[in-house]
């Protein structure tokens, strides 16, 4: 009896705790402080808002519905919020961009789907539903990215790609410190990131260990894409063709003398059996016709 009671109590406590945790989980996003404060360098206006609407309808509306229209996909758990609602609008611009870039649970991330600039446009569209919103612009100057010099060198012994990020300021070349460096390899449908994003050190240097088993083209060439992202200098990228992949030249999947292919590639056993059978029949036919001819010619007794 006592045990039972204890069990019930334990169960109730446990359920409450779970509920609490779940609740917190669905209500808040653990956004890093520096992300939280990120601001758009694009001014939100009618044009950005309407461009954002198109992107929103294509990527977000299937779950979040149209803002304020109450057509959210309610069968999902947790139910996606109406983004024009209070709780969503209470989030900072940086929060919203972070959520777009990371995704969670059923919500996919959009970092490869919607560019940073377009993400701001989506946010611009959403802010249009909040009359109290006043935009704070970031102090970022997009022209500064032209100053960046990005170089990549590969050390084939250690299998390490070393990236140097320098800025051509008036005061001379200075290293770009704590910038995000992401290395990609070009694949048919998109760029594949190698390892994780790293930060440049005090000399503007970052290193990425390359896998040894990455297939390249016939000669082993790989197209390597290096992307830099920095608070002050924005986004910069360079492409290098490096012979660091595994040469790959696999045979075509229909090359073999296989059963699935055209007559020319029929298995020899099928071909010979078939021809043998038809040949035997033709011999039989010739024999019989010859007999009939003899029959026709042999009139007399």
């Amino acid at each position: 009896m006592l045990k039972n009671k204890l069990n019930t109590r334990l169960f109730v406590t446990f359920s409450l705790a779970t509920l609490l945790i779940l609740n917190c989980f669905s209500a808040t996003w653990d956004v890093p402080a520096d992300q939280k404060e990120k601001k758009s360098y694009i001014k939100f206006d009618k044009q950005t808002s309407s461009q954002g609407e198109v992107l929103y309808n294509a990527n977000c509306a299937s779950c979040h519905g149209n803002p304020g229209k109450n057509n959210i996909l309610k069968s999902l758990n947790p139910i996606p919020p109406d983004l024009s609602g209070k709780s969503s609008q209470a989030l900072s611009d940086g929060d919203l961009q972070y959520i777009l870039n990371t995704g969670r649970g059923l919500m996919p991330n959009f970092k490869n789907v919607i560019s940073a600039e377009d993400q701001w446009k989506v946010i611009s569209y959403l802010r249009g539903f909040n009359p109290n919103y006043v935009q704070e612009l970031s102090k970022f100057d997009p022209n500064k990215s032209k100053l960046v010099k990005l170089t990549a060198k590969f050390d084939s012994k250690a299998n390490i790609l070393t990236v140097m990020a320098l800025a051509d300021e008036k005061s001379g070349k200075i290293p770009i410190i704590k910038a995000e460096i992401a290395v990609f390899v070009k694949r048919y449908f998109g760029n594949m990131q190698i390892e994780k994003t790293v930060l440049t050190d005090n000399f503007g240097k970052a290193q990425v260990v390359f896998p040894k088993d990455l297939p390249g083209n016939k000669t082993g060439d790989l197209e390597v894409l290096v992307k830099l992202f920095d608070e002050n200098y924005g986004e910069v990228q360079t492409t290098n063709k490096l012979a660091i992949g595994v040469p790959t030249d696999k045979p075509a999947l229909n090359e073999k003398r296989a059963i699935w292919n055209v007559l020319a590639k029929a298995p020899i056993w099928t071909l010979s059996l078939y021809l043998l059978g038809v040949f035997a029949f033709i011999l039989l036919l010739l024999y019989l016709l010859n007999n009939l001819r003899k029959l026709y010619n042999s009139k007399t007794i």
Binding site: N291, L292, L295, Y296, N297, S298, K299, T300, I301
Partner: peptide, 12 residues
């Protein structure tokens, strides 16, 4: 075919 009931024909 000129059948004439000959032995040869029967054999054929």
């Amino acid at each position: 075919l000129n059948w004439n009931n000959t032995i040869e024909q029967k054999k054929l």
